[in-house]
Design a protein around this nucleic acid. Structure first.
Lengths: 204, 204
DNA sequence: GTTTTTACTAAACAGTGTTCATTATATTTA
DNA sequence: TAAATATAATGAACACTGTTTAGTAAAAAC
């Protein structure tokens, strides 16, 4: 009976090996250049072997996508110590922006790319993403309850904050600002200023 | 000498033929399934011929991307008749959101995809995009001058409005809302409500 | 020790963007 | 008008991609 367990363990090890390799290649070379064949060569297995552990490329990137969300969520929860909910909201925003700027490839996978979506559709619930969003939602709930903020629909408010942050960084990450006549550092400065203004306008 | 002009005309006709075909296929089948070979088959030419008129696939989609911006810009300028700048700003936002929902593929190409960016980098200025953004900037300028709005940095304000709108529709278009426990129609409703709230909070 | 199951892979399929030598056509020159 | 030149178009290939399948080698079960 112990053999079955060992086999299960080996199967998981192989999955981890693939994910680790894929993650490394993805962060180094980007999504497009991280092909099944590149991963296979990296782990010194045949490309076909990968399909014994993952149903397709999307599933691999779904796992990476989940790990990235866990990372973001972890950074979010560090703000548990901030008791004032509005201040915590501001901290969450700041963390979100910085996460995107520091990990543009992860951010892409989490919020922009279509790749992991097909897999998300297969799962009953989008655990990873909901977890991080729930933290924003809880914080927003605190803001609303304590009347620190204008408006009473915490869902709408959370969606708005998320959208604003996402709009800023996704336009930035996908180069829609540098294509205009705005210098790099000015734009980066504006990200913070924009968020500060946005939150200030939200204040009750 | 007239032959040279006719040749030039024929060259332009061929370019238009390719762009028209590519645009139709793109709107019908999406970006990925619009391959050079698909376009070639559609216009009844060999795939290699396309490379006599466009340097690569990106250049084709850059032209489509430019046309899409001209379309959005045209819709924007319809609001010239609205004299109150804040009301015009609201109209621009509404038009932006509706454009994205009606033309998700165009929107993708304009604000999310990387495909046309390599070409944008080649051009001196991003004419198409700047034109539409300038209209927002001018309207915002009016709002600031007439003190209809909080804050004085029109550039920061325009960037904020754009980012907020983009955040909402890009999360929507790329399926980041329907992946959560939010029903489709509720989300669509929230888009309008969110913009309304956002603009309201901006009011002086 | 034989049979069965599992793990793996070479090779192929169908597709992609792109390049290049070659052919067919049109224009210019003698 | 006939030969020479310039232009336009293409078939075939290159180097990739994700994915499937038939076949082989090793491990486990009997």
């Amino acid at each position: 009976m112990a053999i079955k367990e060992r086999k299960e363990r080996e199967k998981q090890d192989m999955r981890n090996l693939i994910i680790d390799s894929a993650t490394g290649l993805f962060l180094k070379l980007g999504y497009d250049k991280t092909s099944i064949r590149t991963i296979a060569e990296d782990i010194e297995y045949s490309p076909a072997t990968i399909y014994l552990y993952f149903k397709d490329k999307d599933e691999i990137f779904y796992v990476i996508h989940e790990n990235a969300f866990a990372l973001l969520d972890k950074e979010f929860r560090k703000h548990d110590v901030i008791e004032n909910h509005f201040e915590r909201l501001a901290a969450i925003c700041s963390t979100y922006i910085n996460f995107a700027l520091k990990n543009p490839d992860y951010y892409d996978l989490m919020f922009i790319m279509r790749a992991p979506l097909s897999q998300i559709a297969c799962e009953e619930t989008w655990t990873a993403g909901n977890c991080a969003f729930d933290y924003l939602l809880d914080t927003m709930s605190g803001c609303v309850d304590e009347k620190l903020i204008k408006g009473g629909d915490k869902f709408l408010l959370a969606m708005s904050v998320w959208s604003f942050g996402h709009g800023l960084v996704s336009l930035y990450v996908r180069g829609r600002f540098d294509v205009m006549n705005m210098p790099e550092d000015v734009v980066k400065d504006m990200l913070d200023k924009a968020v500060a203004n946005f939150l200030n306008n939200l204040k009750a």
